[in-house]
Computed example of a mutant assay.
Amino acid sequence: MDEPQIDPKIRKRQAELTRFLRQEAHAQGFDLCRITLPEAIPEAPARLETFLEAGRHGTMAWMEETKERRADPRVLWSDVRSIVMFGMNYGPDEDPRHLQSQTDKAAISVYARNRDYHDVIKGRLKEVATRFAARAGEDVKVFVDTAPVMEKPLAASAGLGWQGKHTNLVSRDFGSWLFLGSLFTTAELEIDAPERDHCGSCRACLDACPTDAFPAPYQIDARRCISYLTIEHKGPIDRALRPAFGNRIYGCDDCLAACPWNKFAAAAREMKLVARDDLKAPEIAFFLTLDDPSFRTYFSGSPVKRIGRDRFVRNVLIAAGNSGSLDLAPACERLLTDGSADVRGMAAWALSRLLPADRFAALQSAHLMTETDEHVRQEWTTES
């Protein structure tokens, strides 16, 4: 069937608005700007439902609560006619996995080593949206990650890249290092072609995962993912998984860093998020000293701040327990009387791995006399 003919004047306006949009995106530091239709991801609802039914979202109840809006952009906003997807390269200047051999250092995910990218990306998207709305005379909405928008499938349908076997977006030009954002509009724009999958037989990202969080290619179980466990998960972390964390205290870049397409990605340039020097290879020992005020001050403006001091120190204690460094034992011991049960429990676990058996037994005997939290008691009495 022949495609319907579009009035030349309408086609010209679409082209002009699309060109203006791309120019504004480039001016705001975005590396990619491509456009898709709201109905471009018809397979998304079924895939999301399968993911949720299997419980692979862990404790992220909001995914279940927003699944209708997440699965279909038209449910989120019925008037949307075009979806503009933006990509910003945040490629590091070296492989972040090199830090894993330095067991006295703490590994923070590349994306979280500076200002919260949600704020940076959304601020720039709003600039683009304001100028575009004024030019087009159309309504717009912008979204960055926290909204119920399936950014990765939409980005793939717009041609920014494809969803790799690690379920993240992969770009021919920027590898696996792309921040995504979206602009929904009532304007009709020129639509870009999707990018085909270029993963082939490669399984580097799957094999790189330290906790086997991928039950199959293109599928992820958040309950085994270090990023989920260190950021979203509240309370104790599965004892069987803790040793695989190594020194990762916030997020995990292993599957991203392993992608062979990264060799085509340039490191983040000016106007992008460049890592704070003090977060490139921070000392585990320092983070063990943070109380709530000092944590909030140190991570002001950082995405790390949102998980709170207690969950953060819980993660740091896992890294301390994995370090094999007896020098970290005194700092861990001081946290045995912390106000947070999560912190006390993880301090006990860390010391069970760092101290000689007799020294640990002495602490165990003393603290079990006063400890009332059942999860913390289990940490003292369960063998590592």
Rank of each mutant, 00 (worst) to 15 (best):
M1Y: 12
D7R: 06
K9V: 08
I10V: 14
K12G: 10
F20H: 14
F20G: 11
L21P: 00
R22E: 06
Q23P: 02
A25N: 01
A25S: 09
A27M: 06
C33E: 07
I35E: 01
I35V: 15
P38W: 07
P38A: 09
A44P: 00
E49W: 10
L52Y: 08
W62H: 14
E64W: 13
K67G: 02
R69E: 15
R69S: 15
V75Y: 00
W77C: 08
S78V: 04
M85V: 14
D95H: 13
P96S: 08
R97C: 06
Q100C: 06
Q102D: 12
D104H: 14
D104W: 02
Y111P: 01
D116T: 00
Y117E: 05
D119K: 15
V120H: 06
G123C: 04
R124T: 03
R131W: 04
F132C: 03
A133E: 09
R135K: 15
A136D: 02
A147H: 10
M150F: 10
E151P: 02
A156F: 05
A156Y: 04
G159W: 03
G159P: 01
Q163A: 13
Q163L: 12
R172M: 05
D173C: 02
F174I: 02
W177N: 00
E188I: 10
A193S: 13
D197Q: 01
G200H: 06
L206G: 04
A213L: 01
A213R: 03
F214V: 06
P217M: 06
P217I: 09
Q219M: 12
D221R: 06
R224D: 00
I226D: 03
Y228M: 07
A240Y: 10
L241S: 02
R242V: 07
G246S: 10
G246N: 03
G251A: 09
C252F: 12
D253H: 04
D254S: 13
C259D: 01
N262R: 08
A268T: 08
M271K: 13
K272N: 15
R276S: 13
L279V: 09
P282E: 08
P293V: 11
P293H: 12
F295C: 05
R296L: 13
P303L: 09
F312C: 03
V313A: 01
V313W: 03
N315G: 09
S323N: 11
L328F: 09
A331W: 10
C332S: 01
C332E: 02
E333A: 15
L336V: 10
T337S: 14
V343D: 00
G345S: 12
L355R: 05
L355E: 01
P356A: 09
D358W: 00
A361W: 07
Q364H: 13
E371C: 08
E379Q: 14
W380N: 01
